[in-house]
């Protein structure tokens, strides 16, 4: 974790005056409140904050899973608010990778099929060499023909990471990727993600509430009440924990 990785050369994803309001009138909840943030290319960012701080909402809106009430979100140079539903889907398929907390995989497909699913859906030819590299990186060579039900939780998450990387997306969003794993397996997954950034220059944005997980990132953004309240470069678990206590979680 050198200082060089914290100085992005370009911006992979960006939120500009992002506002998200759920409901209306008296019951309206302001999940994102005029929030602006940038996530650099080749950077491993973590988003933290107490429950209801808007961290998941921010991730969903940035990833094109949800739409903003006001403001803009950019992936690369693309303004998501200007995309049609179909274009958004295509963007998620080609430019974004996902790792969710659990049940990341389609149960009827085997590991290999799950990894190539986004590209198969796109119907385009893909880079076999790269897919092989990814599979070897996450160490799944001998599990390719297993279905998710035949894989352990950690193996399932490794397939999910492989899927996210396989299409060489501009950015990977990970939502509590280790939330359902024991700490040893969790570390393995975090190591993979770290090496994806270090070895292949992958951009990753990860939502987490685990200071340990956050310590793997280059930069932590702290949210509260839909706003960025603080930022930390080269985080360690202790420092993040202190900060979280300070924020009153």
């Amino acid at each position: 974790m050198t200082a060089a990785t914290t100085a992005p050369t370009s911006i992979a994803a960006q939120a500009v005056h992002a506002t998200k309001v759920y409901g209306s009138g008296d019951t309206a909840v302001r999940a994102l409140d005029d929030l602006s943030a940038e996530f650099g290319t080749g950077q491993y960012s973590a988003i933290m904050g107490p429950s209801g701080s808007g961290k998941s909402t921010l991730m969903h809106c940035m990833a094109g899973l949800d739409t903003l009430t006001d403001g803009q979100v950019f992936i690369g140079g693309t303004d998501l608010s200007e995309l049609s539903e179909k274009e958004l889907t295509q963007l998620r398929r080609e430019k974004v990778g996902f790792v969710f907390q659990a049940f990341n995989l389609v149960p009827t497909l085997d590991a290999q099929e799950n990894i190539t699913l986004p590209m198969d859906l796109g119907g385009s030819a893909y880079d076999d060499g790269w897919v092989d590299t990814v599979i070897d990186t996450v160490g799944l060579r001998d599990r390719l023909e297993h279905r998710p039900a035949e894989l352990s939780g950690g193996q399932q998450q490794r397939v999910a990471v492989a899927r996210a990387m396989a299409s060489r997306p501009e950015i990977i969003f990970a939502d509590e990727p280790t939330g359902n794993l024991d700490s040893k397996t969790g570390h393995e997954i975090l190591d993979f993600m770290r090496s994806a950034v270090d070895d292949f220059g992958q951009t990753i944005v990860m939502v987490t509430h685990d200071p340990m997980a956050a310590s793997y990132s280059d930069r932590v953004v702290f949210l509260a009440d839909g706003r960025i309240v603080d930022e930390m470069l080269e985080p360690t678990a202790e420092r993040v924990l202190d900060k979280m206590k300070q924020l009153g979680e």
Partner: peptide, 13 residues
């Protein structure tokens, strides 16, 4: 859940 996942990873409507 599975359908939501498929949509997220790029299945069009």
């Amino acid at each position: 859940h599975e359908l939501g996942l498929l949509r997220a990873v790029g299945m069009t409507r």
